[in-house]
Structures are given as C-alpha cells and as structure tokens.
Design a protein around this nucleic acid. Sequence first.
DNA 1: TACTAGATCGGCT
DNA 2: GCCGATCTAGTAG
Length: 201
Amino acid sequence: MNLKDKLPQNFYTQDVHSVARELLGKLFVRKLNGKALVGKIVEVEAYDGSYDEASHAFRGKTKRNEVMFHPGGLLYVYFTYGMHFCCNVVTGKVNEGKAVLLRGLEPLEGIETMAFNRYGKKKITQKELVNLANGPAKICDAFGIARENNGTDLTGDKIFIIDSKKISTSKIGISTRIGIKKSVDLLWRYYIKENLFLSRK
DNA sequence: TACTAGATCGGCT
DNA sequence: GCCGATCTAGTAG
C-alpha cells in the first residue's frame, strides 16, 4: 500500500458505472485511533438517481441524501432497518445524485480491530473472517463507520481509497442488485469473480 | 442447505 | 403509519 496512490477527486467525478467497475481491487482505508483499517474492494453496486427508482436520490434532494448531490469524492453514509449503516462513494458532478454502494471488502490490515468491532474479540475463526466485511452493513460495523462519517471527504486523511492494479474485464462479474424491490432488473452490481469475500456468489 | 422471523427506528408518503 | 440498498439465529427438510 503506497499512500501516494490515494485516488484524486477527478477519479470520483467520472461516470458512476466507470467508478463502480474501477473501484474493484482498490484498497479502502479508514484511519481509526491512529491505526489503519484496510480492505480490498471486491463487490459494489451503482445507484443512478436519475432513472433508478431504487436510489435514495430518485425523488430529489432531501436532508438524508443531500451528500449524494455533491460532486464526486465524498462518503455517503445512511442508516437503515433501524440498526445498520451502509456506505457509498459519491460520484459524478454536482447535483447528479449518483453513488456506488460498497457491498464487499476483503480484510487486509487491522483485522484484529475489525474483529473486535464485529465480534467483540480479536481472535476469530476462518468463517468469521469471511463474514467480517462481506456485506454493506458489515463493512460499516467492521470499519467503525456511522452517522458522523456521512459527508467525509475521500481526498482527506481519515477515509480514502488507494489505487491498485486494474482488475481485468474478464474477472469482473455483473448481476442484478441485492436487497431492493424497485428497478430490480438493472445489472448494476459489479464484483470480482470467485472472490471469497462476496456477499453472494 | 433453505427459508422465515425478529430486531428496531428514521425517513418519507 | 409503513417500509427499508440488512443481518442473525432459529427451524425445518
């Protein structure tokens, strides 16, 4: 991991689908209490507010989704099901309302901290390791991301993403998105094929 | 392995 | 008042 390879703002202002695909394989970093928690991005979903009924941004700007309407490069964190947080990378230009939901990370660094955040213990089984961050709410739990991180600037030094070798197109899987009831046919979920840390096969 | 229910609360109709 | 970009534990097969 080379900190010089932190993704710049102009990475995030690209089209939401380009950002979604290119985020695969990159390293999501969260500094927590002086330590770095790092995970490789293995699964994401695109949400395009302009014609995507499943997107929080579909009905326009509100107090909750306001961050989505900023230019790309911010973290959009929302609270759901009365108990979980999920986080998104805001993309595109101002007022577009588009974002990429992080759905699966492969834990690389700070695993003991993540384990403690999720399971209340530092030593975990192989099964628990696989389940550490293979889902949107699990990511936020493991990485200690909550309401107060909504709107975090990803070009800053608290939460950011490190570039890495691009995943070849042949290794990227595409499917419908998970857990939604509207716009269910859009093939806007992208993932690294055969990775162990996917929320689903 | 597969399906179901329950937890729990903020946002929006 | 209803329902959600979820997760877990429980039961049944």
